[in-house]
Amino acid sequence: MIRRWNPPGPAAPLGRYSHLAAAPADHELLMISGQVGVLEDGTLAGPDAESQARQVFANIESLLRSAGAGPEHLVKLFTMLSGTEHLAGSRAAQGEVFARWYPRGDFPAHSLIVVAALAAPGLVIEVEGVAAVPRG
């Protein structure tokens, strides 16, 4: 079972994440490449961070399922936004998704940065992940 926790010492997390996450030795690490808010047909899910973030998390969930895993196997997420104006929308979508994925608040480790731009015009969010999937 993946262990996530917030030990005493550092201040409490500022958002929906745990300071530490660990995977047991009998798990295989699965690296998830940066996912963007693009539908299966290659079109943007929408022009804003909220619609793109919802699609990003749907893509991550789909990738996890293809590997026999689910959001409960996520150990770490890394979010990149193409401007601070996208924080509210991305956080709103993340809040909705995480309420479903982690109803007990057992969040994976997570980092977020704001970058000058992403790989293509119109993209406002990209999220990478690491999951730990039981072997066998």
Score class of each variant (00 low, 15 high):
V36G: 06
G34W: 07
D41C: 09
V38C: 06
Q52K: 04
A49T: 04
E40F: 04
L29C: 04
I60T: 03
G42V: 06
L44M: 09
A45I: 07
A49Y: 02
L29P: 13
L30N: 04
S51C: 02
A49R: 02
A23S: 13
V36I: 13
T43N: 12
G42Y: 01
A49V: 01
D48T: 12
V56T: 01
L39A: 10
E61Q: 14
A21K: 01
F57W: 15
P47E: 13
A45L: 08
A21G: 14
A25T: 13
H27D: 04
L30H: 12
A49I: 03
V36A: 11
D26T: 11
E28G: 13
G37C: 07
A45G: 10
Q55A: 07
D48Y: 08
V36M: 08
A45N: 05
S33R: 14
A22L: 15
H19W: 15
L29G: 07
M31R: 08
F57N: 02
D48E: 15
V38P: 01
F57T: 01
A21W: 00
G37N: 06
E40Y: 07
Q52M: 08
E28L: 14
E50Y: 09
S62V: 07
A49G: 06
H27M: 00
F57G: 02
Q35V: 00
A45Q: 03
L20M: 14
